[in-house]
Amino acid sequence: MAAQVPGKADQPAPEGYQDSGRSPWGYDTWREATPAPPNVRPGEQSLPAKPRAYTDVKSYHAHVYFDEDNHAKAALLRQWVIERFEVELGDWNLEPRGPHVTPSFYFGFMPEQLAQIYPWLQLNSLGLTILIHPNTDDPRSDHLYYAGWINRSQPVNAYNWAKGKVVERQVEKIYPNIKPSKRLET
Rank of each mutant, 00 (worst) to 15 (best):
A36E: 13
Q18K: 15
E44D: 13
R31W: 02
W30A: 13
R52V: 06
P48E: 00
P38C: 01
P51V: 07
D19P: 11
G16W: 00
P14G: 01
W30M: 06
D10M: 09
P51M: 03
Y17M: 02
A36C: 02
G43M: 07
P42D: 03
S23T: 11
N39S: 13
S20L: 14
P42H: 08
D28L: 14
N39V: 15
D10N: 14
D28P: 00
T34R: 10
A49W: 07
P12V: 02
E44H: 11
Q18P: 01
L47G: 01
P14C: 01
Y17K: 05
E32P: 00
A9C: 07
P12G: 02
R41V: 10
L47S: 06
G16T: 08
V40Y: 11
G43F: 06
P37F: 08
S46P: 11
P42V: 02
G21T: 07
P35N: 08
V40D: 03
N39D: 14
G43D: 06
R52D: 07
L47H: 04
G16I: 04
S46R: 12
P51K: 01
E15A: 14
A49T: 13
Q45S: 13
P14Y: 05
Y17C: 02
Q11K: 14
T34F: 08
S46W: 05
Q45L: 07
R52N: 10
D19A: 15
T29I: 04
W25G: 08
A36R: 06
S23H: 10
S46C: 04
G21V: 06
E15V: 11
R41S: 05
G26D: 04
D19S: 13
K50M: 10
S20Y: 04
G21I: 02
A33E: 11
E15N: 11
D19T: 11
P51C: 09
E15P: 12
T34I: 06
S46M: 05
R31Q: 13
E44C: 11
P42S: 02
Q18A: 12
V40G: 09
T29F: 00
Y27F: 02
G16C: 04
P51R: 02
P51A: 11
T29D: 08
D28M: 12
E15F: 12
D10A: 15
P12Y: 03
T34V: 07
A13T: 03
R31L: 15
S20E: 12
G16L: 03
T34M: 10
P24R: 05
W30I: 04
E15H: 13
K50W: 10
E32R: 10
R41C: 03
L47P: 04
W30K: 03
A9L: 12
P51D: 14
E15M: 07
A49D: 15
P48F: 03
D19K: 09
G21D: 02
P38Y: 01
P12S: 06
P42T: 04
P51G: 06
P42C: 02
N39C: 14
Q11H: 10
P35I: 05
P24M: 12
Q11Y: 06
R52W: 10
P24C: 07
P12T: 01
S23Y: 02
G26M: 03
R22M: 08
G21C: 11
Q45E: 12
Y17W: 14
P24E: 12
D19V: 08
Y17T: 01
R22V: 02
D19Y: 05
S23N: 13
R41L: 12
A33R: 02
K50Q: 13
P38R: 13
E44W: 09
G43H: 06
